[in-house]
């Protein structure tokens, strides 16, 4: 019996040790897929986004954009404004990524997920929206496909409600207010001001999201 107990003890000890060693090794090299597991809590298991949680679709967004935003969140260039409720939710999550390497890995992984076109939730005037979109088109492309050269992300995968929130954030100086911290956001901030009111925002977003 005594030898049986000590065998059990040894087994437990070795098991604990093995778990420690294994988890520390896996912590050293977390793959994009490992890192993405945390994102799924809010952004959905496919990165499709969850409107209820205010988490936009991220699947299929270009990795340069995801990378930039994750860096902005972790540096405080985004999501550190006292009124930015959703940004403040994302910020600590971005800060769990321990290195640029990890940011890169998870961004690449997410960019390769199948892009998802969320349903339209707005009901604006498409024709009026099309006229307004002429300004956006220069950077975001005729079909909202985005353009890396202009640092303009695609507009098709996040969800129109998310785009609405971001236009408001840019307008309220919660995002892109400081060109030194977020030069890319700072180019968008004055553009958000072009849209006169919520009606104009709704129109332009309806036009974008109904694009085939």
């Amino acid at each position: 019996m005594a030898s049986g107990l000590s065998f059990l003890g040894r087994l437990l000890g070795m098991g604990t040790l093995a778990i420690c060693v294994f988890s520390s090794f896996s912590a050293v090299a977390r793959s994009g897929q490992d890192l993405f597991r945390l994102c799924t809590a809010c952004h959905g298991d496919q990165g499709q986004g969850k409107k209820d949680l205010g988490a936009p679709g991220i699947a299929g967004m270009p990795s340069w954009y995801l990378e930039k935003q994750l860096k902005n969140f972790s540096s405080g260039a985004r999501g550190a404004h006292a009124k930015d409720f959703f940004g403040m939710r994302m910020r600590p999550m971005a800060r769990t990524l321990r290195s640029e390497e990890e940011i890169k890995k998870v961004s690449e992984y997410v960019s390769k997920l199948k892009a998802h076109r969320p349903d339209s939730t707005l009901n604006g005037d498409v024709a009026a929206g099309q006229a307004l979109y002429n300004t956006c088109l220069a950077c975001h492309g005729p079909n909202g496909e985005g353009n890396q050269a202009m640092s303009a992300p695609p507009l098709l995968y996040s969800g129109d409600w998310y785009l609405m929130r971001q236009i408001h954030s840019f307008g309220n100086k919660m995002r892109g207010a400081d060109p030194a911290k977020d030069p890319m956001g700072a180019t968008m901030a004055p553009m958000a001001g072009i849209l006169a009111d919520d009606k104009a925002i709704e129109d332009v977003l309806t036009y974008i999201t109904t694009k085939k």
Partner: peptide
């Protein structure tokens, strides 16, 4: 408190809370 940050609203130079010179910080 909110998920997952603390918003701190300080009284500004006028020492009164809920006035225009309040200072808001995150965390």
């Amino acid at each position: 408190g909110q998920q997952w940050a603390w918003r701190m609203q300080h009284p500004g130079p006028d020492k009164q809370l809920d006035t225009a010179d309040d200072i808001e910080l995150v965390d």
